[in-house]
Amino acid sequence: MKYALFLGCKIPSQLPAYEASTRAVLGHLGVTLVDLRFDCCGYPARSYSRDAFVVAAARNLALAERAGLDLLTPCSCCFGSLRHAIRFLSEDAELRARVAQTLAAEGLTWSGSIGVEHLLPLLAREVGVAALAAAVRVPRSGLRVAAQYGCHALRPSDVSGIDNPIAPTMFETLIRVTGATPVDWPRRLDCCGDPLHEANAPLAGHMTRAKITDALESGAQALCSACPHCQLRFDAVQAGSTDPAIQTLLYTQLLGLALGLPAKSLGL
């Protein structure tokens, strides 16, 4: 298993623990990660111009294609963006031609030969739940965990679709394998509020708070994310708030602890 690791913009600058724990866990599990000179996935440009968005994403795809590697990302938003770009490129020949022209300036091409994978399905399917179970050394027994997939890992399912978007089970399975107990919480598939922060901060605040309250009411002790945006959002809203708080944990950290990796290597 060898992938080009796509970290996106948020992880290296604002959530280095996610990078550290991802590298530690995947390294431990025998997944080889290659670093290419990736740039922004294109996400912020989507509200300005679809073409610009696709061009930015396609350059990353083309870099991976040149290296002959599938892309792996621990960020649900980057995942969604890159997959969306593939969709737009696949369904629009004129767009494809425009993008090809821009990429050609750098000597790059996109043919669609490489895939984009999210961290969760990589662990659940490629590495495999059985292999994970066998590798667990320190089960996190007794810890009740609420799984936060990150919208763009699930929806729209025809673009990202790592699991059934209405009733996903993958993340819960991955939590169970660490020995922790996944909790069922009604708002588990809701948006964390992060994308709304700039446009309408009070509304975004409502959304985030509703999720945290729901996780707490559902008996969760930790909120486990597989997306930097969600994790940062939960932390930002809880920082400086006197409302009841919940521990936030990245999935790679939870798994890393269960694998017996040193907490320091997981950014904890």
Binding site: D158, G161, D163, N164, P168, T169
Partner: peptide
């Protein structure tokens, strides 16, 4: 959806 998902049915919802 929960029922079929939990029983391992592979869903292609938007296809």
């Amino acid at each position: 959806e929960t029922v079929v998902s939990a029983r391992g049915v592979l869903r292609r919802r938007q296809a």
